[in-house]
C-alpha cells in the first residue's frame, strides 16, 4: 500500500469512527433537548449498598405493576417488548396507566419502552418490566454526596422520553429536589 493511500485511508478511518461517536452523542443531546420530561420514582435495590462500584441500580416503580390494577391492550408473553403509557401522578412522579404492545397511532400520552421479564401467574401477582434505564453511573465524588441522603427519602429519575419510547436519563431528584441535571454534552 502506497504512503499516500495509507494517509488518506487512515484519515478516513479516523473520521468515520469519530463520526460514529459523534452520532451517538448528538442523538442523545437531541433527544434530551426535544423529548418529553418525566420523573419516575425509583427504589433502592440494596439499602446497605447504594452504590456498587460507580453506579446505582435503578428499580423504577413503573417496572413492578400489580396485575389487578394494571390495564393492558391484550395478553403479554415473557421477553416481549412493552410500551408503558405514563401519566403524571399526584406527587410529581409519573405512573403507569396502561401497557401496550405498540404505541397507538392516535396517542397523545407519553410511552416508555421496556421488556416484559415476568407475567403475572394469578390475579394478585404482578408484571415485572425491565427498562434499559436500569442504572445510573456516578463518579466517586458524586456517589459520596448521594450517600448522605437518607434511604427513606424518595429517589426520582428524570428522563427525557423520545416519541419512539426510548428514554434518556436527564438527572436525579431526591425528596423532590433536583440534585443533578445532566449536561447536554
Amino acid at each position: 500500500m502506497s504512503r499516500g493511500k495509507f494517509l488518506i485511508a487512515a484519515i478516513l478511518v479516523a473520521l468515520l469512527q469519530t463520526a460514529a461517536i459523534a452520532g451517538i452523542m448528538y442523538k442523545r443531546a437531541h433527544e434530551i433537548s426535544t423529548g418529553q420530561e418525566v420523573i419516575l420514582e425509583s427504589r433502592f435495590v440494596d439499602p446497605r449498598d447504594l452504590f456498587r462500584g460507580h453506579y446505582v441500580i435503578l428499580n423504577l416503580n413503573v417496572g413492578q405493576l400489580e396485575n389487578a390494577t394494571t390495564e393492558i391492550d391484550f395478553t403479554f408473553k415473557r421477553q416481549e417488548d412493552v410500551f408503558v403509557e405514563l401519566e403524571e401522578g399526584e406527587n410529581g412522579f409519573w405512573v403507569a396507566r396502561k401497557l401496550w404492545h405498540e404505541i397507538p397511532s392516535d396517542h397523545i400520552s407519553v410511552f416508555i419502552k421496556g421488556k416484559i421479564l415476568r407475567t403475572p401467574l394469578k390475579k394478585t401477582d404482578r408484571y415485572q418490566i425491565n427498562f434499559p434505564q436500569d442504572r445510573y453511573f456516578a463518579p466517586k465524588k458524586r456517589a459520596k454526596e448521594l450517600e448522605k441522603f437518607r434511604r427513606d427519602q424518595q429517589l426520582g429519575v428524570i428522563l427525557s422520553i423520545a416519541p419512539n419510547g426510548a428514554g434518556y436519563i436527564k438527572g436525579i431528584t431526591i425528596a423532590g429536589d433536583r440534585i443533578y441535571d445532566e449536561p447536554l454534552w
Binding site: 478511518v13 479516523a14 469512527q17 460514529a20 461517536i21 451517538i24 452523542m25 442523545r28 427498562f131 434499559p132 434505564q133 436500569d134 442504572r135 445510573y136 453511573f137 428514554g167 434518556y168 436519563i169 445532566e182
Partner: peptide, 20 residues
Amino acid sequence: GSAIFGATIMLVGQIYHLQG
C-alpha cells in the same frame, strides 16, 4: 486506534448514561 475507538464507545455509554 481501533481499541481506543471501542473504549470511547463504552465510555460515552457510561458517562452519558446511555442504556443501549
